[in-house]
């Protein structure tokens, strides 16, 4: 991994839904250890963009080039499906807004965390369980609950479990879609603090979609503001939030409620 090569290079990515534009003309480089926030209102195309970047949706145009560990930069949509799926469950993580979409609710917390390990060939039960325990601790879940089903967990715990499940294979890039959406404020704060710590400590790169500017300020080094499928402004997080240039960003920033 070289500092000269971006981890993810996005070039003119666009996605149309028939006549409707999902997102268009998106280009940026994401560097190792960098967290990019994508903000915008509902329908601005930020989730469409995230889905394109994370290979869940094939873009109508453009390239998404990822600096793979083995072979260097490759367009993820020119990989074979098996290469892409392997990448998605080893070197990437995907944290969904609703933890119920990102967890297997029918199996225990430990199995949820261990699944990725088993998927890449771990075949020692004791080791897998130990690793699962370590990760539950890291995300502040009582290890005594390792055999409980996630459906018995609170929303905040489910979200933390989802994070552990994703990070267990030491991915280099994590996509997060509204990671704190739907959580109450105190739970949100805990999760943000945890995410912030993990990202710094593990040197993760991340793309975080959120409509919450406070979340963006706390997590992201850099911001991209989207409206109507277009990127209207991007730059350093505090610069975009403190000295917004585009009319829409100014509106967004001035619309925050102060407690």
């Amino acid at each position: 991994m070289s500092q000269d090569t971006p981890l993810l290079s996005v070039q003119n990515v666009g996605k149309d839904y028939g006549e409707t534009i999902g997102c268009t003309d998106v280009s940026f480089d994401l560097w190792p250890g960098e967290v990019l926030g994508i903000v915008g209102e509902s329908g601005s195309g930020k989730t469409t963009l995230l889905n394109c970047l994370s290979a869940q949706l094939e873009p109508s145009r453009g390239k998404v080039i990822y600096d793979t560990r083995a072979e260097g930069p490759r367009n993820i949509f020119e990989m074979t499906e098996s290469e892409r799926r392997l990448l998605m469950r080893t070197d990437w993580g995907l944290v969904r807004q609703n933890p119920r979409d990102g967890l297997r609710l029918g199996v225990s917390a430990g199995a949820n965390v261990g699944e990725r390990l088993m998927a890449v060939g771990a075949r020692h039960y004791g080791d897998i369980r130990q690793e699962a325990c370590d990760w539950l601790e890291k995300v502040e879940i009582d290890t005594g609950r390792i055999d409980h089903l996630p459906s018995t967990f609170s929303g905040g715990m489910q979200q933390r479990l989802q994070i552990a499940r994703n990070l267990v294979t030491n991915p280099r890039l994590v996509f997060m879609d509204e990671p704190t959406g739907g959580l109450d404020v105190s739970v949100q704060a805990r999760l943000l603090d945890l995410l912030r710590g993990l990202v710094t400590r593990l040197g993760l790169s991340a793309v975080v979609v959120t409509h919450d500017l406070a979340v963006a300020r706390l997590l992201a080094h850099r911001l991209m503001v989207m409206k109507g499928g277009h990127v209207v402004e991007q730059g350093l997080t505090d610069q975009v939030l403190d000295d917004p240039q585009h009319a829409y960003t100014q509106l967004l920033v001035s619309s925050i409620l102060q407690p």
């Binding site: 499906e81 098996s82 799926r85 297997r104 199996v107 225990s108 430990g110 199995a111 261990g114 699944e115 990725r116 088993m118 998927a119 890449v120 060939g121 075949r123 039960y125 897998i128 369980r129 390792i146 055999d147």
Partner: peptide
């Protein structure tokens, strides 16, 4: 079918893991 095609069988061990855990 896709999982068979790509030999994505790790998940099968999740079932056995659950057995041992329980």
């Amino acid at each position: 079918r896709k999982m068979h095609a790509l030999e994505e069988y790790g998940i099968m061990h999740v079932k056995l893991y659950e057995d041992i855990a329980r």
